[in-house]
Amino acid sequence: MNRFSYSRPGAVSEAVRAVQAEAGAKFIAGGTNLVDLMKYDVERPRRLVDVGALPGLDRIEEQAGGLRIGALVTNSALAYDPRIQERYPLLSRAVLSGASPQLRNAATTGGNLLQRTRCYYFYDTGTPCNKREPGTGCPAVNGVNRIHAILGTSEHCIATHPSDMCVALAALEASVEVTGPGGDRRIALADFHRLPGDQPERDSTLGADEIVTAVQLPPKGFPANYTYLKLRDRQSYAFALVSVAAALEMDGGSIREARLALGGVAHKPWRDPQAEALLRGRPATREAFAEAAALVLKDARGYGGNTFKIELARRAIIRALSQAAAGTPQPIADKHIA
């Protein structure tokens, strides 16, 4: 970990100015990912601007029939908030399936949006990586890629976005409030994270000096028919190989509204509006779910170690939609996959 200077501004605007004023300055809040990356020398900020105690950003508030989650609300506070549990249980489940209680107590909503990939090569400064050092190459394409992406990849990067929370947020059509030197703006979650293309060093569309201030949840929370299904290499405290957030609105036996997002398969939470459209108005049958899965995965590509994810994702989508339709969400502690 390099040496750096540190400041703790008292207001968002000051924080933005502090980061803008110094090349290599970065915001820090919970620190659970940034400090981790700094110890690996993957991140080497010149200054840390501590936004962790900024006032007013640690609240969950009613807004326009939905909820506004301050960027500093911790993952634990979010997941266990009664309003979230009641109205957006999909989000609660997703958050609780990620990391560990200790990490969730420290990690923030804003930080979770911005957490970086778990790609082995990205984390290892002894190896090339286009995301870490643009132009050095991507050894994962022909290397150890069990955890890598199958959708939306480029020859430059096959890393995945590791968040569980963001997968649920994508399904819920959340949006992100940000502020920066150019003022406030709102970014739809679908547009917040990006695909690697030829700029894998950029994870999101957030501007360099911008800061996330809140996440907005629209009114629709799908509290009756949802599931967050996470498949991983051990029963807890592991990143998703594949995860599926499924949220349905049912009209008797048929689907009125469908949301479907995948984690662990792409550089961003992978939402497929076409597959959702296909489900709309259809009876909730395995056939319909299988068609939707096929549509989601039609352009999926494996790289050897991760090729299994295509079949796994297909089955996981079907299972998640079935669970959602039946109103039997996947429990977090019960490892029996219902």
């Binding site: 082995y120 090569y121 290892d124 190896t127 050894p139 051990r234 029963q235 592991a238 990143f239 502690a333």
Partner: peptide
Amino acid sequence: RLGRFMNHNIAEYHLPVNAD
């Protein structure tokens, strides 16, 4: 190709956890 163990951490080398 690199001759290197890549999952050299205990987030990606999976020791069993309590839930296992």
